[in-house]
Design a protein around this nucleic acid. Structure first.
Lengths: 261, 261
DNA sequence: GACGCCTAGTCGTCTAGATGAGTTCCACCA
DNA sequence: TGGTGGAACTCATCTAGACGACTAGGCGTC
């Protein structure tokens, strides 16, 4: 039952700092210093109670603190574990370049397989609907849109879900309205429709997930999401697609290249 | 003491869902539906205890749930409030374009004043130090660097802090090593030194803040940070600066433009 | 009017205990 | 051999109460 000595220190009873914060500090430091490795099990609540001589609620308070920081996650009946850092997927700013599209495969699939992961696309849903105010504004006062909703998984883990919106009069009746848009994806189809793509605008924000997002992406406590809204413009400056994406922040790093002039 | 009726519903005792989650759901829904507006005070813990007929710890558990989601923040002695959404600063991908630099003022200052905010720069610290492994790799195997550390505030609120690293043999003895690098900032000085800037690489990640970041940025619970690492390259492809930035995620939206070819 | 004190209301921290539920493993029995 | 039941351990939820500390407003004193 007793804790291996040296793993965790003692409390400072003279400190102003709340006891549960001191305990969280101790555990955090032990993780930082590698005394608890990624994926390792923390001492059980009972062991921590004994070690620090406090009540169980205080220990739980400490752990819930660390959970909120995304450092640990608890599993009912098993224990509390140092949260492993999943491999991140790097999204380069040229990922929608035409030269990649011409290969004919979806960007997500190609990239994932190159990284040795098993990609999946999920819950595909294609609908015709009224544009929300925001989408309408981004598409240039379009009323009705075709929406394409899907979820992406890597090795069975959901990492991202996205909804594309296209003006209905552009997409209706084309392969874009089919579940499978064909080789090169909807951007290839848009170009075949004579909409030569010129550039994309991306807006990036980070925030904590909603309840629904937590569920859809199976997020652990303390994992934010990246919310990315991309608008595609054709060579005449018309917006042809808006893609609204929510990503598990611990699975991604976004890379952009900016010109200096 | 009693709660205005209609604000919050009742619990479902037959539900599997934990009581504290049901209470959090009720409050979340009330916020979503606008029954509690931004900045409004939630019912006190005592009122919620009475309304739902549960113990105080259960109510506190609900509230701490909502805090973790970034929905509310509590103020000791005052109450729990719906977290107001602060105005966000939009960072455009051309913010380092030469044409802006030539105005002579710092980008942060110009932008903030244009938006009607009061900008401040803080805790400026210039040091010579050994490069960390990561910084060294990004700068191309540079051992010693000049580091410039500073914090940015808008209307007194810290929103971002950043550290720039430059190869020491490039920056030493120049105005870059001075606290005030002069008009146009260090990028202008680099160009005067013959390092014509070609492009920047930016890497964006989001995560929960460390203890220190929470303190430096005075972050509320449930606010993630955006971690941005920018590398500046000159026209000969040499990395001349790495800037490591941590931003309060609720204060920013990043905007990028990507070419389609 | 300015200041300080007091008080009621608020959240923060901590204790001690009860019950529930998921996981693991092993001894026992068929 | 193989399955089953249970013990022991884990975290999850909830209760009831105590004390501390911060805030705001009222009130009296100077």
């Amino acid at each position: 039952m007793a804790l291996p000595s040296g793993l965790l220190g003692a409390l400072d009873p003279t400190s102003d700092r709340a006891v549960f914060r001191q305990i969280a500090d101790q555990i955090r430091e032990a993780i930082d210093k590698g005394r608890f490795k990624e994926g390792a099990k923390l001492p059980s609540e009972a062991e921590l109670v004994e070690h620090f001589g406090v009540s169980r609620m205080t220990v739980r308070n400490s752990i819930s603190q660390l959970q909120g920081e995304g450092l640990v996650s608890s599993e009912h009946g098993k224990g509390v574990f140092v949260r492993p850092r999943p491999p991140v997927r790097r999204l380069a700013s040229d990922r929608f370049a035409r030269r990649h599209r011409e290969q004919g495969k979806a960007a997500f699939t190609v990239e994932a397989e190159a990284a040795g992961s098993r990609p999946e696309v999920d819950s595909l849903e294609v609908k015709e609907e009224r544009a929300s105010q925001d989408i309408s504004a981004r598409l240039g006062s379009v009323r009705k849109v075709l929406s394409r909703r899907r979820r992406y998984l890597l090795d069975g883990r959901p990492v991202e879900f996205a909804t594309s919106y296209l003006p209905l009069d552009l997409a209706r009746g084309t392969q874009i309205a089919e579940p499978n848009p064909g080789p090169g994806g909807i951007y290839a189809r848009l170009e075949e429709l004579g909409r030569h793509l010129d550039h994309f605008d991306e807006e990036v924000q980070a925030r904590m997930p909603s309840q629904e997002e937590t569920k859809t992406l199976r997020l652990a406590a303390g994992v934010p999401v990246i919310h990315l809204v991309r608008t595609a413009y054709d060579s005449e400056g018309r917006a042809v697609e808006v893609c609204d994406t929510v990503m598990a922040a611990d699975a991604y790093v976004l890379a952009y290249q900016l010109p200096a002039n």
